[in-house]
Each structure stands twice: as structure tokens, then as C-alpha cells.
Design a protein around this nucleic acid. Structure first.
Length: 114
RNA sequence: UCAGAGGGUCGGGCGACCGCCUACUUUCGUUAAUGCUUUGACGUGCUUGCCGCGCCGAAGCCUAGCGAGGGCGGGAGGAAAGUCCGGGCUCCAUUGAAGCAGGAUGCCGGAUAACGACCGGCGGGCGUAUUGGCAACAAUGCGCUUAGGGAAAGUGCAACAGAAAGCAAACCGCCCGCCACUAUUUUUAUUGGCGUGGUAAGGGUGAAAGGGUGUGGUAAGAGCGCACCGCCGUUUUGGUAACAAAGCGGGCAUGGUAAACCCCAUCCGGAGCAAGACCAAAUAGGGGCGGCAUCACGGCGUGUUUCAACGUCGCUGCCCGGGUUGGUCGCUUGAGGUUCUGAGCAAUCAGUACCCUAGAUGAAUGGUCGCCGCCAUUAUGCUCUUGGGCAUAAUGUGUACAGAACCCGGCUUAUAGACCCUCUGAUUUA
RNA sequence: UGGGGCGUAGCCAAGUGGUAAGGCAUCGGGUUUUGAUCCCGUGAUCGUUGGUUCGAACCCAGCCGCCCCAA
């Protein structure tokens, strides 16, 4: 697979997250990924991150979002589909999981969604 | 040395690869508007010039924004947390001030921009040591702790128990008087009954029963008298004061509860950076002005039995106002920090020198990996008076609590581990 | 981030200083041939930790948890 020059955008508004929630999703032990085609297709991939209060305090939630952001930056240009929006949702052990396992989960989920 | 209590300081380090936010600077690109310089075309004026004015265009400079790249810097805390107090700042209200209502605070002094919360002292409480004492206890020292005005302005409350719970009160008991019975020669004693009798020592109830201990006294008792302690009043001395000490006087009244209502004194306008200021798209709707239509039909309203009549509703251009999504500012130079000196017991204050030290907004300040440190456990070795100490090695999901959101002063709460100070106890050595 | 409110049995709840009502549910017993109905009985760290008071679910503080409002 050739490495494409794909720009990553951010999801910022609640309505955008709700839009993606109605699309396809893949659940893994360490992470849940949702995906849905954009209503007006562009060359960009927009991505958002979710960490609920259930998984810990502010320190844990911020760490989860930072790790997810790093995963998205590394793997979405390789395995993501342009013109789609993605939402990465942290689970209870996202903060503690091994980095290699996280990478494996994300890769598998993205390939199955593609 | 160990254990406990209280207080304070710190709160891992180095490196590699890949990233994020941001100040400044620089290069390139792009956009915008104004200005300046140079220059060209056109129009026009006259004093016909290396002229002035207007307009259009090109190039360059300057300014601002955006994008990409380079350079050089910065980038979470002691609690950033809880949001419990106080202040700055902003808007609203208010002529100013006082007051009502409501709320907060409450020994004294200091400190502060301010605070109830900070500092020091006083009084109370607890622990401990020493001394005195038969003891109860008292004095003194040390440590910890303390929301601590007024109960003699008024109202209320105290279940159950108990005779009685607030202008005191007599259940048992004790004593006295009278009567009866029994014993006795009598005095007298025992038992029982009665009394507008005395009595707060003793028993019992209770959280609390109208000073405590001792002694005298008495029919029995009682501050009834006395000694000591406590209490009240007053004077003097010390202290800025709270208060303390001493003297004199008074036999003792004034029980508790105000984190019950309340009284007294002092303080408080309200909301909060999602405050507030500015820019501003699309759509819908509002107002004003202008143009077109303003014939007919129709809708709605007034009115009416109905009709008639009157008003209003259309399209389009420009402007105004409001300000939703979004954006910019507020936004970090401030009661700022660090060092040193001085004043003060301290909180804190004054001076000097130096420094600028996060500004994000689905929210940056990191992700991954390696090495070391620290801690715990185990093993081995050495040492030592047992405990223990040191060295080496291995093991470990070990290495906390926790993430700025306008800023600051306090408080409270969470916290692996390390270090320091004070006090108490135990043990060892001298 | 700021501003408000609430915690009583498994559930709904009353009680506002003096032994913590009541209803539904659970469990046990009785009535009945059996079941339903009915009757009797059964259970509380009053969120937690301190303080005031003789005495605290109640009064006063500190924590913990939950809910609501302001995009």
C-alpha cells in the first residue's frame, strides 16, 4: 500500500460525533472505532476521540486521548479511507495496555472497516 | 537506636526516534486596503511647463492577515482538586447616606488590599513530669487542643426516672412532741399511729438536686460558727488589652442550654471571564426610504341579518437595528518571583540587586523505547552485643496523589517515598 | 468552568432535639383440600467523620456520592 498524503481533520461538535455514531463500528478489547462516510465526500479523514468519565479521572482520560491521537496519526494514513469520519473511543484498559497490543487492535479494526 | 504525636521542605534523572501548542525572528507564496515613490496611457485646465488636477494600469516599498518552511527560546501543581471564605477585575443597579429584611462574625492584641480561617498572647480542657499533701487535690514546667460576647432584658426547652427539675421541694431516713401497747418498781426503752413539727447530714432517681473538704456545734441537722479551697463585690499593683496577683469586705446569692428564639457590637448592593467589549456569513423574521404594481379576484380584521364601506396582506433595490453558528480581544507584568540585608517572638513589613517564568479552547504542555536512581522481597557474603548495618545479585503489571482554563491571599481534602525540627515513651552506652 | 439542590429498609417515603410512622416488596407462620385474598410476625452504621448538648436522623462544620441549571 502506497503512503498517501492524507490530511487529518478534527471532529469538534457534538452533532458530528452523533453523526458518526450511526455508522459502522468495530469493538476490540482495548478500543472501539466508529466510521461513517462523510455526507459531502472530501479527500480528508476527520477523526475524533472520546473518553468517558467511566474510565477514570482527568489524568487518565487525557492520557487515553493522547495515546489514541498518536495511534490515529500513525495508522490512519495507512489504513483509513479518505472521505470518511472516524471516532476512537477509549475503554477501561486503554491507559494500561501494551503499546503493541493497541497497535494490533487498531490495525485490525481499520482493515475490517475498510 | 526504636515507636508515637505535631510541624516543615522536596516530590525522580539522563538519552534516542517521532509529535503538539506558543513568543520572537527570517524566507517564500497569497490576499486586502490605505499611503508613499517611480513610471505609462487617457481626460481636462491654463501661466504651454521637466506644469497642476482627475481617473485607470504596472513595478517597488511599507502595514496587516493567512499558508508553507527555516532559526532560536518557552511549555502543569503542591495541591493545578474541593469550590469553603476573602479580594482584584467586568457588567448591572444606585444622587449620596442611613435604615428595614436577610446573612455572616464574636476572649484580647497584631498583621493584611481584604478575610472567620494568618501570627502572638489570655482563659478553659486533656496528657505528662516534679514538688507539697494521709487523701481529695493544688502549684509549677513541657506538649497537644480549644466556634471562647451576653443566661442579672425577655420567651422557651429538659423525654424517662424521681417526693421534688426552678418565686424550690420532705418519699425513705434522722430528730422532737403527743397518744396507744409491751417490758420495767420508776427513770427509761422497743413497736405502731398522729402532727399546717424540725431537718438537705445519709439512702434512692437522674446528665443535672441550690458550693466542696475538715472541724466545732446541735434534739437531729444546717455557712449556724471557724480554717482552707471555690464564688461575688470592691480597692491597689502589673499589663496596650484579654487577664493575673495581692489586700479588704460578704456566708453564698446568680443551676444548665444562645452550633434554641433572642439581645448587644461589627461587617455585607447583586451577578459572575459562559463577566464583558468588538467583527460578522447563510436562512427566517422586524423597521425605514425609493421604484413597480396598486384593475380584478382572494385571505384576514372592524362592522353587519346580509350587502356595502374602511384598514391590511404583493414584488424588488438600498439602508438601519437585533447578533444565532463562527471569530478576535479580555489573557497574562502581577497586592509577581528569587537572592541578600534590616525590623519583629511570629504572621508580616521595608530596602537592594536580578528575572519575565504556560496561555490551551473536543482543550497543547506529549507518545514509544532504553539506561540509571529510589523502594520492597528473596538469596549469598562480611560485620556486629540480639535487634541491626554494609556489599553484591535476582525478582517486581512496585515508583504516589493528581492536569492550568481570568488572576491572587487563605482553608480543607488526597498523596509512594526521602530529608529536617520539636515533644513524649522505651532501650542501650557513657 | 461557574451556579443551585438532595442523601432515612430492596423501592416509595413521614419524621426537624427525647424509643425512627406508614405503604409496596421479601421471608416465616396461620386460615384453606390447594392457590389467591385476608390475619399475625420479621428487618435501619438515618451517606460518612467530627463537634455542640444530659441526649443528634434532626443543630453546626469537614468529606463522599448523586441530580439539576447556564453551550
Amino acid at each position: 500500500m502506497t503512503i498517501k498524503n492524507i490530511k487529518l481533520g478534527k471532529l469538534k461538535k457534538r452533532s458530528e460525533f452523533l453523526y458518526v455514531r450511526d455508522g459502522r463500528y468495530q469493538a476490540k478489547p482495548n478500543i472501539v472505532i466508529q466510521m461513517r462516510a462523510q455526507s459531502e465526500a472530501t479527500e480528508m479523514i476527520n477523526v475524533g476521540f472520546t473518553a468517558t468519565k467511566k474510565i477514570g479521572n482527568a489524568v487518565v482520560r487525557n492520557r487515553c486521548k493522547r495515546r489514541l491521537r498518536e495511534l490515529a496519526r500513525a495508522l490512519l494514513p495507512l489504513h483509513g479511507k479518505p472521505g470518511h469520519n472516524y471516532v476512537f473511543i477509549a475503554r477501561a484498559n486503554t491507559a494500561k495496555a501494551e503499546w503493541a497490543d493497541l497497535q494490533k487492535d487498531v490495525e485490525k479494526a481499520l482493515l475490517r472497516l475498510a
